[in-house]
Simulated assay, not measured.
Amino acid sequence: MRAAAPEVVAPQELEALCRKLQAQMPTGVALAMTRAGGDLPAIYPAESAAMTRAVPRRVAEFTAGRAAARMALSQLGVAPVAIPMGSDRAPVWPSGLCGSISHMDDLCIAVAAREGNIAALGIDVESAGALDADLMPSIATSLELRRMGGAPSLAAKRLFSAKEAAYKAQYPLSRRVFGFHTLGLAERQADTLTFRFSEEVPPFVAGSRIVVRQWETAGLCLSLSVLRR
């Protein structure tokens, strides 16, 4: 469902953008950014099995994502470690740690935290442009778009990113796959969006809330969900 997006962050701006976002992370959450195709360490043997049949672009994206994840973990004092892909294609984080990885074109971003009062994380990055009109009905209801405000196509893109982050955050706990309308936007306060489950998705009951914080900067829409115990 992702549409191609132009390069929105020049390589020389990446470090400054990363520092800016790191300063806005909640306590205990580390963030790192990389670019696919750069001078990055090779993936670990435990990770390479997932890339056996992948095309070069996907290998570059995967390599950059794992590099960003290890950079985020290093901020928590964790030595470099493999982050293999599980049978459900989700990253398998080291015991006692949680995290999330997102890609947009050649830009990769990862967040990580030590499990404790944080149970799971979800991160998503998109271009800040409009969402294709034919995708909007599958992403958001008219009520959700009104709650977001602004141009519907831009509101739909922000909702797409926020729901992706919320879905990623809940997945390690539920291991359930569901559509965008299972999480409905209940409230928006500035850069904070609150979603509610429209149905039971164990361990979440219908009506359970997931909060997402969202930033728009440097042509990007970045969404982060932190699930606390």
Rank of each mutant, 00 (worst) to 15 (best):
P172G: 06
A82I: 05
V78P: 01
M33F: 08
V9D: 07
R147P: 08
E199L: 13
M51K: 01
C98L: 05
S161P: 00
A113I: 06
G184T: 15
A218G: 09
G116L: 11
D134N: 02
N117D: 15
T217H: 09
Y171G: 03
Q189T: 15
Q22M: 07
L31T: 12
A3F: 12
R2N: 13
P172E: 05
K157G: 07
G116N: 11
I139A: 02
T52E: 08
D39S: 11
L222C: 13
A32S: 12
G184R: 14
L107W: 02
G150Y: 05
P45Q: 05
S87V: 14
Y167H: 10
S48I: 01
A133H: 01
G207T: 13
P152D: 03
G179L: 04
R58M: 07
A162H: 00
V92P: 00
L73N: 00
G184K: 12
S208R: 08
L185K: 00
F204T: 04
C98D: 07
P94R: 08
T34H: 09
S225K: 08
A10W: 03
G99R: 01
G150I: 08
G149K: 08
T52Y: 01
R57F: 03
V125M: 08
V177P: 00
E15A: 15
Q12N: 12
T27C: 10
A79M: 11
L21G: 02
S208V: 08
A36E: 02
C98Y: 01
P152W: 04
L145G: 07
R213N: 15
A110P: 11
M51V: 13
A130N: 01
A186P: 02
G99K: 00
M104T: 09
A110L: 10
A32C: 03
E115M: 13
R228M: 13
S95T: 12
V111R: 06
R175A: 11
M136V: 15
L183P: 13
E216F: 09
R147I: 12
V111I: 09
L31N: 05
A110C: 07
A5C: 14
A79T: 14
P26M: 11
E187R: 11
E200V: 15
S138R: 14
T182W: 02
S74G: 05
